[in-house]
Design a protein around this nucleic acid. Sequence first.
DNA 1: CATACTTTTGTAATGATTTCAATAAACTAA
DNA 2: TTAGTTTATTGAAATCATTACAAAAGTATG
Lengths: 135, 135
Amino acid sequence: MLESHQYLRQFSIKPSVQRSAVMHFLLNNRIHPTIDEIYMALSPTMPTLSKTTVYNTLDLFVEKGAVRALAIDEKNARYDVDISAHGHFMCKSCGKVHDIFDLKPSMFQIPESESFRIDSVEISYLGACKSCKGN
Amino acid sequence: MLESHQYLRQFSIKPSVQRSAVMHFLLNNRIHPTIDEIYMALSPTMPTLSKTTVYNTLDLFVEKGAVRALAIDEKNARYDVDISAHGHFMCKSCGKVHDIFDLKPSMFQIPESESFRIDSVEISYLGACKSCKGN
DNA sequence: CATACTTTTGTAATGATTTCAATAAACTAA
DNA sequence: TTAGTTTATTGAAATCATTACAAAAGTATG
C-alpha cells in the first residue's frame, strides 16, 4: 500500500485512499482486470467504494500515463499497469488476457505517416488458451 | 448488388436480400462502419430492415470469415471487408478508422507459443488525423 | 475556524448489444 | 402446387457497461 502511494506520486497523481487501493490491486494482480473485477475485489474491504470512483480513478490513471487501457476485449475495458512495450493475447473462450512479451521491439515502432500523428500502438492476439484448447 | 451476391457465395453465405445489401454497402464503403452506420445507410432504401438483422448478419459474416471485426474502437464494434493482413489507425478526436497498409508482413506472423493457440492478430494505432491535429 | 477546492458517492440516464418470441420467407418432399 | 419444415427477419424488451450529474464528504489554505 505504501509502494502504491509512492508509485502514484511518480505520475503526479494525488494518492487518496481509493486511488492507492486501486493502484495496489493493479500492481499485485497482473490480470488486466476490468472495472468490475477491480470493484468486486476491493469492495469487501472498502464497503463504501463506489463503482463510479473506480471509473474516475482509472480514467485519471490512463490520463496521467500510469496505466494503459486495452481495447482487446470488446465487452469491457481492461487495464494494464505494465506500460512497457508488449502485446496481449485474449482467449476467446474464457476471456482471460495474457501478456506477450517476446515480440520484436521493432513491432512497436510508430510507422511514418503524413496523414496521421500516431501516439500509441496496440498489438493484440486472439485464440484459445491451454485450458480452453479442447473446446 | 450482383457482385455482393457472388461474393457472399464464396464464403458459403446464403445471399438473402438483406445480406446482399449489407455486403454491398461494406464493399463500396471502406470506412470500417459500425452497426449503426450500416443500419442508417440502408434503412432509407430498406424501410423494414431491422437493426437486429444487421447484428445477425455481421455476426454471420465474421463467423464465415467474410468480414473482420475490429476492437480498435471501444465504443462500437467496427467491421472491415478487407481481410488481408493490414493494420488500423483510429483518430481519438473524430473517431474515424483508416487502414494502414504499409506494415512489414512479418508483423502479422503468429508468434510461437506453447500456452496458446493464436488464431488472429490485430495491430492498432491511435492518435490524431490530419484534420484533427489542431486540437 | 471558515472558505475554497478536490474527491467520492449514489442515482439516474444513455446507448450498444443480446434475448426472445412472433412473423415471414425459402426450401423440401409428396 | 401444397403442406410441412427449416431458416431468416423483425420488433420489442431486457441486459449491461459506461457516463452524467448533483449532493456529500474530505482535504488544503488562509
